[in-house]
Computed example of a mutant assay.
Amino acid sequence: MGAVTAERLAELGATVVVLARRKERLDSLVKNIEAAGGTALARAVDVTDRDAVQTAADQVAERFGKARWSATSPPGTSSPTPTS
């Protein structure tokens, strides 16, 4: 959804979960959010694989509870799209 959006949501008190194929790119984002006092989690997931996304969602729900809001930034778009 973009680092700026994730950081801003964390500043507002949201627990942020970021998914991407390359987790190493997400790790620095999570460290920045946590350093600022936020809560974040990164998961390496191919977001085009529905089963992998569902598995990640199940893991997140087990850890943090049901998601109240989610967004995605599909390839080729520049802004998050709310999904719930």
Rank of each mutant, 00 (worst) to 15 (best):
T77D: 12
P74Y: 03
A14G: 01
T55C: 01
R68C: 03
A52N: 04
S73C: 12
T39G: 00
V18S: 09
A6W: 01
P75T: 12
P80C: 05
A57Q: 09
V4M: 05
E24N: 09
T81L: 15
G2Q: 02
V60T: 11
M1S: 14
T39F: 01
P75W: 15
V4T: 11
A52T: 05
D46K: 10
R8F: 11
R22L: 06
T5N: 05
D46V: 06
W69Y: 10
A57D: 06
A52E: 13
G13I: 04
V30F: 10
V4W: 07
A61P: 06
T15N: 02
D51S: 13
E11D: 12
E24A: 13
A52Q: 12
G76H: 12
W69A: 14
G13V: 03
T81F: 14
V16I: 11
S78W: 15
D51T: 11
N32W: 04
R68F: 07
T5Y: 10
V30I: 14
W69R: 08
A71Y: 12
T15R: 08
T72L: 08
E34K: 07
T55Y: 01
R21C: 01
A71L: 08
G2L: 01
A57C: 06
R8N: 08
A61R: 14
A56P: 09
T55Q: 13
T48K: 12
W69P: 00
I33H: 09
R43C: 01
R50H: 06
P80Q: 04
G2W: 02
